[in-house]
Amino acid sequence: MRGKKQLSVLTIAATYTGTVVGAGFASGQEVLQFFGYFGLRGILGLVLTTVLLAFFGYLILDLGRKLQANSHLPVVRYAGGKWAGTAVDWIITLFLFGSLVTMSAGAGAIFKEQLGLPFWLGSLVMIVISLATVLTGIAGVVTSISFVVPLLLVAVFAITLYTLTADYSALASALRTYFNPGKAPAPFWPLTALLYASYNLVLSAAILAPLGSMSGPRQIKAGALLGGAGLGVGAAAIDLVLLAHINRAANFEIPMLHVAGTISPLARIGYTMVLLAEIYTTAVSSLYGFVARMGKQGTAKYRWITLGAGAAAFGLAQFGFSNLVGTLFPAVGFAGFLLLGSLVYGFIKDRKVKPAVEAREAVLARQPTPAMAFEVAEELAGEGKDGNESN
């Protein structure tokens, strides 16, 4: 890392947050299904998820730093070995495509619910502009994400503040009485917390691994903690808002837009624009990540894979946004347990191997090899010769 400019703690935290905070998060549908349906118990799930995101995010960043990784592949191969690492690599790659499908469906839901236009038109528009961006090689996706995420968080916290003041009694009632686990992806809140952390880490590993190679150990630790805390607080804010409007919000594909509409038409329009921008940045980064893993940029194969992925994503998006969130994300979450297990194994392995390596290096430093002794003797003889000549 010498000579390299290291990323700041805030940059690491913001990038981590921006990777996880996609359209599913911003729409409220993820938080509703994984936490909202559990009422007060969902808050406990959010606490568990926050700890998991901070801890495993740190592990990925730290391995990326130690391995100087340019992608997620060296990290998952080191942590899980050849076979498990290869499996995790394909899980990440396929989920990038699944994320593109979900973003296309999210755009369709917004067009239908908020603009009164056909669902398929919203999906098509999002796919077309995503294809255009990736095919023309326009850079700056990360920059656009870092620009959109603060706007999203400001909008979420503003709606939360309004809800806590205007709808406090409804929120208090929901926290006391609401509990509907039958509509959640899994019937137990600790399991949904694990699933939520798992599939988000699968998606974010592709960004966190190379991010770690540009960071120092102190920045990584603080950035992971801050990023995990920010994600937990943001999800908790959305959860509280949805619980205050749970009886009606649960009936919408994009529940946060319904809540924004209860404040004012202007608030709904503003949140719609922020959400569409979030969907676009997530769709582009997902499509690029998938295609770049499958083919080299600038080749005919790359272009054909891009077009084929876009067409397939458009077709699958017609399955519906909430249906995709409720089926695809939990499935990837279960598959992602392999990633979490690999990271824990890699962490334990690293803790055991590192002291042994350091001890071996210390012994070698105290006990020079014959070759090292010969070199030192030659240097001393040369110095003595020079000293005699000078005399």
Rank of each mutant, 00 (worst) to 15 (best):
R2F: 15
K5N: 13
L7T: 03
T19P: 01
T19I: 09
A23S: 13
A26Q: 10
A26K: 07
S27Y: 01
V31W: 03
Y37K: 07
R41A: 15
L46M: 12
F55H: 07
L59D: 01
L59F: 09
D62N: 12
D62S: 08
L63D: 01
K66R: 15
H72P: 03
T86L: 13
V88M: 08
D89R: 02
I91S: 02
I92W: 00
F95W: 08
L96C: 09
S99R: 09
V101K: 02
M103Y: 01
A109K: 09
F111R: 01
Q114F: 08
W120T: 08
L121H: 06
G122E: 04
G122P: 06
S123I: 03
S130F: 10
S130E: 00
A132K: 03
T133M: 03
T133Y: 12
V142L: 01
T143Y: 02
V154I: 13
V154Y: 08
T160Y: 01
T160A: 15
L161R: 13
T165Y: 10
D167K: 15
S169G: 10
L171H: 04
A172Y: 05
R176I: 11
T177Q: 14
Y178N: 09
P187V: 02
P190H: 07
T192D: 02
N200Y: 10
L201P: 02
L203F: 15
A205V: 11
G212F: 02
G216R: 04
R218V: 12
A222V: 13
G223D: 05
G227R: 02
G234K: 01
A235S: 13
D239N: 15
D239T: 12
I254L: 10
I254E: 00
L257Q: 08
A260P: 06
I263V: 15
L266W: 15
Y271I: 06
L276N: 01
I279P: 05
T282Q: 07
S286W: 03
R293H: 10
K296E: 15
Q297W: 11
R303H: 12
T306C: 13
A312H: 09
F319Y: 14
S322W: 01
N323I: 00
T327M: 08
P330Y: 02
V332H: 01
A335P: 03
L338K: 07
L338H: 09
L343Q: 04
V344T: 13
K354P: 02
P355Q: 07
A356G: 03
R360G: 10
R366D: 11
A371N: 12
M372E: 15
V376G: 02
E383F: 14
G387R: 14
G387L: 14
N388T: 11
S390G: 12
